[in-house]
Amino acid sequence: MSTVKADSLELDPDLGSRLAELAAREGTSLAEFAERVLRAYADEAERTDVEAVDDEKRWQAYLQSRHAVPFEAVRQRLGMLRDEARAKSARR
């Protein structure tokens, strides 16, 4: 994988020290640690964006259909799934 050199990143000295200490504990360089942290943050931010779009689509579908599952039906189904999982676990 090729890499791109980004502009220098200026950190608060305290934060820089904390990150360097965490990187050292993991046996990695500060640059590698920072890249992993930033990658995880970007992944989560993108996932959040996708979920927001999906949520909006579901909301719009509900507004059109007005179809919803009553809470008691959900509770009953979850209870059935719990009981099935317990029975399966007991058979092991």
Rank of each mutant, 00 (worst) to 15 (best):
R36Q: 14
R36M: 13
A87C: 03
E44W: 06
A61M: 01
G79S: 05
Q76F: 12
D7A: 11
R75H: 11
S8Y: 08
L38F: 13
R92M: 14
R77G: 05
D49P: 01
G79K: 00
P70E: 05
Q60Y: 11
L30V: 07
E72W: 07
A85G: 01
R92K: 13
Y62W: 09
L19V: 01
R58A: 15
M1D: 13
A40L: 11
L11W: 02
Q64G: 15
L81D: 11
S29C: 06
R66T: 13
D7F: 06
A68S: 09
D83P: 02
L78Y: 05
E56Y: 09
E84G: 05
K88A: 15
T3R: 03
R91H: 13
V53G: 01
M80H: 13
R18N: 11
R91D: 15
A90S: 08
E56C: 09
Y41E: 13
A90C: 03
A90V: 02
A85P: 01
G79F: 02
M80T: 13
A90L: 05
A6G: 07
F33E: 00
E26N: 05
E56I: 00
S2F: 11
M1F: 12
Q60A: 12
A85R: 01
E35L: 14
D49N: 09
A42R: 06
